[in-house]
């Protein structure tokens, strides 16, 4: 897979992941209540899902793992927490990418919602177990908001892919 075609437009993939990382840590404007943070979509998971569906030969589990580690370091969470979530998301997408690709965008959004809810449950269980923090039920707004954002991520990244990659 080391042919020329397989590295074409890698910068598009990398910069979309970088943008997602920035959006993940972007501070809310001053004065906005902290609970608004629960309305922030899981940008990294959405972008990883898109690229694993579109280019499963190039973006996969290892990409998800390393991007997740970056997110862990930069957001100061337990090392491996984001990485595990993104690897799970990517493995679901990779296992069924041929089927998910065939679905309409709103159906894909439903799949995204289900995958991210599962992910949220796992990460809540881990955080509650390891750090003894109480969790807020508002956490489950994140998959919902992410699913609502999915169509735009999908259309935007697809336009970029068609323009720069294939």
């Amino acid at each position: 897979m080391a042919s020329e075609a397989s590295s074409k437009g890698s910068w598009v993939i990398l910069s979309s992941l970088f943008m997602a990382l920035i959006l993940t840590i972007l501070p809310l404007p001053e004065g906005v209540p902290m609970e608004m943070g629960y309305l922030r979509p899981d940008w990294l998971a959405l972008v990883i899902v898109y690229w694993t569906l579109a280019l499963p030969d190039r973006v996969g589990l290892l990409t998800a793992f390393f991007v997740g580690l970056l997110a862990d370091v930069i957001s100061g969470s337990l090392l491996g927490l984001h990485a595990m979530g993104l690897v799970m998301v990517a493995s679901f997408a990779l296992a069924a990418y041929q089927r998910i690709r065939m679905l309409a965008v709103w159906q894909q959004a439903t799949i995204v919602f289900l995958i991210l809810t599962l992910l949220q449950i796992v990460s809540v269980l881990i955080t509650v177990q390891l750090s003894g923090r109480a969790f807020s039920w508002l956490t489950f707004l994140i998959p919902l908001v992410s699913a609502l954002v999915w169509p735009w991520i999908f259309l935007g990244l697809r336009a970029l892919r068609r323009r720069f990659i294939n």
Partner: peptide, 29 residues
Amino acid sequence: IGVKASGLIFACVILVSVDASTLWLKSFK
């Protein structure tokens, strides 16, 4: 895919538990 995914998830679980209970990863972080 399954083998690779479970391997990576296992690695993450190890990382998370080491990071939660020891300070070994502090200098790396």
